[in-house]
Amino acid sequence: MSISLFTFEPWATIHQQQVEDALARVMPSEETSPARLHSAMRYAVLGGGKRVRALLSYAAAELVRAPAKSTDAAAVAVELIHAFSLVHDDMPCMDDDDLRRGKPSCHKQYGDATALLVGDALQSLAFQTIADTNAPQALKQVQVLAQATGSRGMCGGQSIDLQSTGLLLTRSELETMHQYKTGALIRASTLLGAYAAESTSEAHISLLNQYSENMGLAFQVVDDILDATADTQTLGKTAGKDALQEKSTYVSLLGIEEANALVKRLYEQTLQLLAGFDKQADPLRAIARFICERTS
């Protein structure tokens, strides 16, 4: 299926490079002491990933006409938090994965202790990056990102996931877990872009909250489908781990066919949500399609 009249790929490529350049500027060089830690931070962050969360920040910022400096900071912050979560998730005490973005996981390349510190340092740098902008709504951005990262967000979701291994969750329990584990940072990515503006209307925040809820769920359902159907080379991480670890997923709960149908419904609902907006919402529409149709 095509992406309407909006040319998503050029737009995405420009903004992926924009956040890559901004990330490279924000992180200390490999020559800066402690050199090994900074080398590992750059290894974990640069040169990989689809930057979906950064693209969400840029798309929301375009909707509200936010300035470039605070928008870049928002995109950088969410990518740093995402990278921190991946580094820690891959460690032996968590999901225990040796491969990330098609290369050895950070702990395989630099050791467990350094990987642990990488995650801690990336998290701190994310908040510093926002604070350094002195933007009018920087405090609100910090609040949103802190909640998305903590025990009522990503860390809480990971905790529930660890405790649920081998258990059969209900659909409601599964959705709650992923609202925290995956959805919270997707919501934060979108809202940080919106709060990059000097002011943001309640109408825009309400819309983007609903958009994020749909896309957070769709992202996780597609992840579960891909884990069950794609191979390791395609994914850039170990495929089939959910089944091996006896985790409840949307595929184990609903089956492939119904999981795909759920993704389709979420996409259609999201298009309806954005129906009243002009071309400024085209990036949000295109990202929704990308999330729902991605193959890796």
Rank of each mutant, 00 (worst) to 15 (best):
V118T: 07
R187D: 10
A286K: 05
S189K: 07
I291E: 00
H204K: 13
K241E: 11
N260Q: 15
A239F: 06
L167F: 13
Q210C: 05
Q158H: 02
L208C: 02
N214C: 08
E268S: 01
F6K: 11
K140F: 02
M215I: 14
G216Q: 12
H15M: 03
D224F: 04
A12H: 06
A24T: 06
I205K: 10
L55H: 08
F127H: 04
A75F: 11
Q109F: 00
S33M: 08
A35I: 10
K264C: 08
R289T: 07
R25E: 13
Q143S: 08
A228G: 06
Q109N: 03
Q141Y: 04
A138N: 06
D282I: 01
Q220V: 06
F277S: 08
L254C: 09
Q280V: 11
V144R: 08
K140A: 08
D112F: 05
T232W: 04
G193M: 11
S199E: 14
E257W: 13
F219E: 00
D224W: 13
G156H: 06
D132V: 00
G193A: 07
L254T: 02
I225K: 07
R152H: 15
G183P: 08
L273V: 14
E79R: 03
M91W: 15
G49T: 10
A73V: 11
L46G: 11
A194S: 06
R100M: 06
L174Q: 07
I291N: 01
T170S: 14
D90W: 13
A115G: 05
I14P: 00
A44Q: 07
E198V: 04
T229G: 01
L37D: 04
E173N: 09
R65L: 10
R100I: 05
N214F: 14
T182V: 09
G183S: 08
G102A: 05
A281V: 02
P34N: 09
S39D: 12
Q147D: 13
G47M: 11
T232N: 01
L169H: 13
T234D: 00
M27Q: 06
A24K: 01
S248T: 15
V251I: 10
T190W: 12
Q245D: 15
S29N: 14
S189C: 04
L46D: 02
L169S: 09
K237Y: 15
S296E: 00
L168M: 10
L217N: 04
Y250I: 10
V222I: 13
S124H: 13
E9Y: 04
A75Q: 03
P10H: 09
A194I: 03
G255V: 04
H178S: 09
S33I: 09
E268G: 01
K108F: 00
L192Q: 09
Q158R: 12
L284C: 07
E79Y: 13
L254K: 11
L253M: 12
A73R: 12
K247L: 11
K69A: 10
F8V: 07
R289K: 12
T170Y: 15
F277H: 14
D90F: 10
A239H: 05
A40I: 09
